[in-house]
């Protein structure tokens, strides 16, 4: 696992990698850029890049804010594998974990005006499959190339 965000000086984006992030949002763009460059190398459609960029932001934001509770000494690990027909991304924080089933539905009429609580919903909407480890501090997101 490399320490810190994906580096700028690289010959080509890594199709498979693990990085450890320490700062949010500062470390986010480099990860998004490298994953999306790997996705672009496989000529995924633009809609796929939009979806993957979005879920990277949502999952990493949730990991730092809700998982690690924005404690500066805690890190977040991100792993990705980009293949011709699917992309798998895992994001793990150092928090106690959460039960995704316990989250209220942000589309309920009485919750529409609340400014937060939509990240997990968007991840599920855009990804083909979303799963969590037992502790609930690691999310694995699978995106299959549209046919």
């Amino acid at each position: 696992m490399s320490d810190g965000p994906a580096e700028n000086q690289r010959p080509s984006p890594r199709q498979k990698a693990s990085v450890r992030l320490h700062r949010f949002p500062e470390d986010l763009p480099a990860v998004q850029t490298e994953v999306l460059e790997a996705v672009s190398a496989h000529e995924y459609p633009g809609a796929s890049e939009f979806a993957l960029r979005l879920v990277l932001e949502e999952a990493i934001s949730n990991a730092f804010r809700h998982g690690n509770k924005s404690k500066p000494d805690l890190h977040v690990d991100v792993e990705w594998t980009v293949e011709p027909d699917r992309v798998v991304i895992s994001v793990e924080d150092q928090g106690a974990g959460f039960d995704p089933e316990s989250l209220p539905d942000p589309t309920d009429d009485d919750r529409l005006e609340l400014p937060s609580g939509r990240g997990v919903m968007l991840i599920h909407a855009y990804m083909t499959d979303v799963s969590y480890n037992e502790r609930g501090n690691r999310v694995t997101m699978v995106y299959k190339r549209p046919s």
């Binding site: 979005l54 932001e57 949502e58 934001s61 005006e113 400014p115 937060s116 939509r118 990240g119 968007l122």
Partner: peptide, 17 residues
């Protein structure tokens, strides 16, 4: 604008409110 996340939606909702 070509990208938007839930953080931006939250800001728009705060502006709306």
């Amino acid at each position: 604008v070509d990208h938007l996340s839930s953080a931006a939606l939250g800001t728009l909702i705060t502006i709306h409110n």
